[in-house]
Write a protein that binds this DNA or RNA. Sequence first.
DNA 1: CGGCTCGTACGATAGACTTCGTAGTACGGG
DNA 2: CCCGTACTACGAAGTCTATCGTACGAGCCG
Lengths: 119, 119
Amino acid sequence: MTTASPAPSSRDLPHPAREEIRLEGVLHALSDPLRLRIVRELAAEGVELSCSYFDLPVTKSTTTHHFRVLRENGVIRQVYEGTAKMNGLRRVDLDALFPGLLDSLLAAAAHQAARHDEP
Amino acid sequence: MTTASPAPSSRDLPHPAREEIRLEGVLHALSDPLRLRIVRELAAEGVELSCSYFDLPVTKSTTTHHFRVLRENGVIRQVYEGTAKMNGLRRVDLDALFPGLLDSLLAAAAHQAARHDEP
DNA sequence: CGGCTCGTACGATAGACTTCGTAGTACGGG
DNA sequence: CCCGTACTACGAAGTCTATCGTACGAGCCG
């Protein structure tokens, strides 16, 4: 049977449970421009994206570090899929914990981007 | 005439203009538990409060440091009034820059406090 | 005036954060 | 099976942060 077994490639990454996510941690994770940018792209695309999708102005080591900060603070979920690691926003968890916060943050970031970065 | 001259005690503190306030800075300022707590009390009282109003578990030096971080990131406004320094939320500026964000953040903090800190 | 309170400034320290480079592991394709 | 790709782990360097202690300046009150 074509069981939809998630092929749990034995490479599991530690994620905080929903109740363990702390607001301070989320804010800290998003207070870095690079990480905020990652989250914005993730939210814009709406689907899971591989790390290499992002073209960040830092080395891969640093990229790994930033993705880990986002994961450890409960902002994103990371799952291996073959050689790629897919990243998805934990929108459901965040919305349950902090209703409306994520949307406000994304709107604020978009607002600011429209004011400064983009012409 | 009893001019409402603000008695500009010649001790003026540098504040960022509204347009200079950066989302990353605000998030960073609020990612510290002590500073988040200060902002929550400020929002709850709704009026300007002196530094000594807060009974924080750190020394006065550290308190000064945290208030400065909040001011330099545009979260609060500080004005001298005699020997006291009054602190007020820059709600108008923040609401203009990031509509709804402050309320979402305060609600999220209250939510979390209800879940963990308070019984 | 003398002292008190409020808050600052400065220096110091320990810890955390960001970034990198190198070396290594896991998966998939020829 | 060997190699390329994707990402990690570890160590190192530099910077930033949080905290403190002590010493100081600015107003208020007796």
